[in-house]
């Protein structure tokens, strides 16, 4: 397969291509409209391959696409990975500050504006009938996308917090204390984000190693893809405190959208890894039942369970899509 090297323009906007590395992952900065709003998109392989897109949105902890090995495995199963860096996560333009106030975060307007921007990116990339995979803190926006975007065939909410009370599951203890600080006060947020950036700048491998300590699958993924985590740590330096506040509040505080039975008619599944605590699993199962959504547990991984268990992810996707196809034809 040959990688694309051609500069092009779509939808009246401008885009530039640049290779992430020597692999078949390549990235573009997509301009939206006439201003300087831009979104980073990383795609694997050729657009004209006829494969179904697997669109991945990043969590706050790792604003990077999955490894080439993961993308290649998806490619061989006839899925094409398209990673979109969410607004404000290092390269993509942040949401304007006026949308990142306490009230607009709390009432869901900020998250919905982000969903509208991402839907615009889907439209410009001409993505149709695709699988959407939300990683960690991306899920508050993914719930909304699954419900407003007709082009989403199936949504997978990986490590979605929903409205669980789960701060206790984060390890190590200093990281858990830091997360508590971020949602309790703006001053606490400033200190915590400074602390995380400092640690990531000094020793990204050490930082990620501690945060991922619960899961052998995640640690294996880290060791096999250190360069990606180093780049992720660099990108994290560019995330503004307001974006961190928005993202953590949407993930760690109750989201008023998540009413009982919300996903009853949505083609979506919750996804998590078995390498986590019993507390997380029982809270997730309880929330999933309340929201009418199934949960699938991958054998390896926790925060990065889809990347650490690609075969299981493929099984979940193909089973769900087959079931959907059967329901439609029946």
């Amino acid at each position: 397969m040959s990688a694309q090297r051609k500069l092009s323009s779509i939808g009246g906007g401008q885009k530039t291509h640049q290779f992430v590395d020597d692999s078949n992952r390549f990235e573009e900065l997509m301009r939206l409209g006439h201003s300087d709003v831009q979104i980073r998109v990383v795609k694997y392989g050729e657009e004209s391959s006829g494969r179904r897109p697997l669109v991945i949105l990043n969590s706050i902890d790792f604003p990077m696409p999955p490894s080439e090995q993961f993308c290649d495995r998806m490619w061989r199963a006839r899925f094409r990975v398209v990673f979109i860096e969410r607004p404000g996560f290092g390269t993509s333009t942040p949401l304007p500050g006026v949308l990142l106030q306490s009230e607009t975060i709390r009432n869901g307007a900020a998250s919905m504006a982000e969903a509208a921007i991402l839907q615009e990116v889907f439209r410009r990339l001409a993505l149709e009938d695709f699988v959407l995979l939300g990683m960690g803190s991306a899920n508050s926006v993914c719930y909304r996308l699954a419900m407003i975007c007709p082009m989403v065939a199936l949504a997978i909410f990986s490590n979605a917090v929903f409205n669980q009370n789960i701060l206790d599951v984060f390890r190590p203890n200093w990281f858990q204390a830091m997360l508590r600080q971020t949602i309790q006060s703006r001053a606490g947020l400033q200190i915590a984000s400074f602390g995380v950036k400092y640690r990531l700048r000094r020793n990204p491998e050490g930082f990620y190693g501690q945060v991922l300590q619960k899961s052998a699958g995640d640690l294996g993924y880290l060791q096999n893809n250190l360069a990606d985590f180093e780049r992720g740590a660099e990108l994290f330096q560019g995330i503004e405190a307001q974006t961190i506040e928005y993202d953590l509040n949407m993930s760690l505080k109750p989201d008023s959208l998540l009413k009982d039975g919300l996903f009853e008619t949505t083609n979506a599944v919750a996804f998590s890894g078995l390498e986590t605590t019993d507390h997380w699993k029982s809270q997730l199962n309880q929330e999933a039942k309340r929201l009418s959504i199934d949960v699938e547990y991958a054998p390896n991984g926790d925060l990065y369970a889809p990347y650490a268990s690609p075969e299981f992810l493929l099984k979940v996707i193909t089973d769900r899509l087959n079931r959907l196809g059967a329901a439609q034809s029946g």
């Binding site: 939206l32 409209g33 006439h34 201003s35 300087d36 709003v37 333009t93 304007p96 504006a113 969903a115 509208a116 921007i117 839907q119 615009e120 439209r123 407003i148």
Partner: peptide
Amino acid sequence: PDRLEDLIAIIDRA
């Protein structure tokens, strides 16, 4: 303001 106008147009399309 250009950025605001672009975002309003994007939300209108959504």
